[in-house]
């Protein structure tokens, strides 16, 4: 019986191989090769593009620990990731709830389109649009002053809030989508059953809806937290001088200082830290869900 089963799986694998091959080939070329090149770079003293001599070193990794600046920036980036993720939950989850459980038919499609729209616009265009809105004398400033009876000065440009706003706007669709999918899968009769058993709307939310949609919340949080911690475009353009984060430092090493080995080493440290955080958080979150 067991042997038969094993043969069956093996022959199943063999027939699936031609179908899987292109995917694995693509993964090898697109991810594994560049990544291993980066691992290699991160241990070099010098990128020998100009034919300079180079040697293997651990110095790039040591640099992270010898200068407190990197750790400070990493912590700032982690905090940024956490804050953006929280804002995305605060904004995205209720939106997903309304989409999945309140709206029906045409209005649902229309709102859905609005939520997805940031996905379809170019990232740079999006960020520069925010720059136009947030700067002094920009759209927000002008509009508020047109409505309010007193004069106020709104200049959010080149500030931490501007970075948060830009990042939240870019990433909130992930949260809406993942939460929408799990919320939509919750049968309305579960909510009605909860109410008929004497639970208020709030109790139903806390004890049925949120636990059942936890997988969506976790997936959305992971999808947002990881790229935000390493983000550089929004911090640089909207943050100005306040927008120095771990990601921007890595970017500098690649495009400005041309110290690829250091940039690569810093990236891998970030990757390791993020993986550790996800590994620690996942059992806790799984239990909550």
């Amino acid at each position: 019986m067991a042997a038969q089963g094993a043969t069956a799986t093996r022959s199943g694998l063999r027939s699936a191989l031609p179908l899987l091959a292109p995917a694995y080939l693509w993964l090898t070329v697109a991810i594994f090769l560049p990544l291993s090149a980066m691992v290699f770079f991160s241990f070099m003293t010098e990128l020998s593009l100009s034919g300079k001599p180079w040697a293997f070193t651990l110095g790039n990794y040591a640099a992270f620990f010898s200068q407190s600046l990197y750790l400070t920036l990493l912590l700032a980036s982690l905090r940024l990731g956490l804050e953006v993720t929280l804002w995305c939950i605060v904004i995205g989850y209720p939106a997903a709830y309304v989409l999945a459980k309140v709206l029906k038919g045409r209005s649902r499609e229309a709102i859905f389109l609005l939520v997805i729209l940031p996905f379809w616009s170019n990232g740079l265009v999006r960020i520069f649009s925010w720059a136009m809105v947030l700067r002094e004398g920009g759209i927000l400033d002008t509009a508020l002053n047109a409505v309010l009876p007193f004069k106020i000065n709104i200049d959010l440009m080149y500030s931490y809030p501007a970075v948060i706003i830009g990042l939240v706007h870019s990433y909130v669709p992930y949260m809406v989508l993942t939460c929408y999918l799990t919320l939509q899968a919750i049968d309305d009769s579960l909510i009605e059953a909860g109410r008929s058993l004497g639970a208020t709307r709030l109790q139903v939310l806390k004890r049925i809806i949120i636990p059942l949609s936890m997988p969506g919340l976790v997936a959305g949080a992971a999808l947002i937290f990881v790229p935000v911690v390493g983000s550089f475009m929004e911090p640089r353009i909207l943050g100005g001088r306040t927008g120095t984060f771990y990601g921007t430092v890595i970017e500098d090493q690649f495009v400005a200082v041309f110290n690829w080995p250091l940039g690569a080493a810093l990236s891998f440290i970030l990757l390791a830290v993020v993986l550790v955080i996800l590994a620690v958080a996942s059992p806790v979150l799984r239990r909550a869900a």
């Binding site: 009605e192 059953a193 008929s196 639970a199």
Partner: peptide, 16 residues
């Protein structure tokens, strides 16, 4: 609903 003190069994059971 929650104040009516009814018990309901749904066609699809609706267990949590």
């Amino acid at each position: 609903v929650e104040k009516r003190r009814i018990g309901m069994v749904f066609q699809n059971y609706a267990l949590f």
